[in-house]
Computed example of a mutant assay.
Amino acid sequence: MLSYFAPHGGHPPQTDLLSGRAVFTDAYAVLPHGTMRDITTSALPFWDATRLWVLARPMTGFAETFSQYIMEVQPGGGSDRPEADPDAQAVLFVTEGQIVLSIGDTPHTLTPGGYAYIPPGLAWTLRATGEAPARFHWIRKAYEHAPGLDTPDPLVLNEADIAPTPMPGTNGAWATTRFVDPADLRHDMHVTIVTLQPGAVIPFLETHVMEHGLYVLEGKAVYRLNADWVEVEAGDFMWLRAFCPQACYAGGPGSFRYLLYKDVNRHAPLTLRR
Rank of each mutant, 00 (worst) to 15 (best):
G254Q: 05
T25H: 08
S42A: 10
T106P: 08
G172C: 00
H11D: 11
T111F: 03
Y69M: 02
K220N: 14
S79N: 09
W138C: 08
L270T: 14
L101P: 07
R135L: 15
F5P: 03
G61C: 02
G114H: 03
M189I: 05
P112T: 14
V232Y: 12
G61T: 02
T50G: 07
G20M: 12
Y261D: 02
L270A: 11
D153Y: 13
A183I: 06
G10S: 01
G76M: 06
L260G: 06
F62T: 09
L52A: 14
G252A: 12
L92C: 03
A29W: 15
R266W: 11
A132C: 05
H137R: 15
D161I: 10
V209W: 06
P269Y: 09
T15M: 09
L225Y: 06
V54I: 12
L214S: 07
G20Q: 13
D80I: 13
M59P: 00
A200S: 07
H137Q: 15
L126H: 05
D150I: 04
F179I: 03
W124Q: 02
Q197C: 03
L217R: 04
A116E: 06
Y4W: 13
V230Q: 09
L155M: 14
F136W: 13
A234K: 13
M59I: 05
T15N: 08
M71Q: 05
P13T: 10
A6P: 01
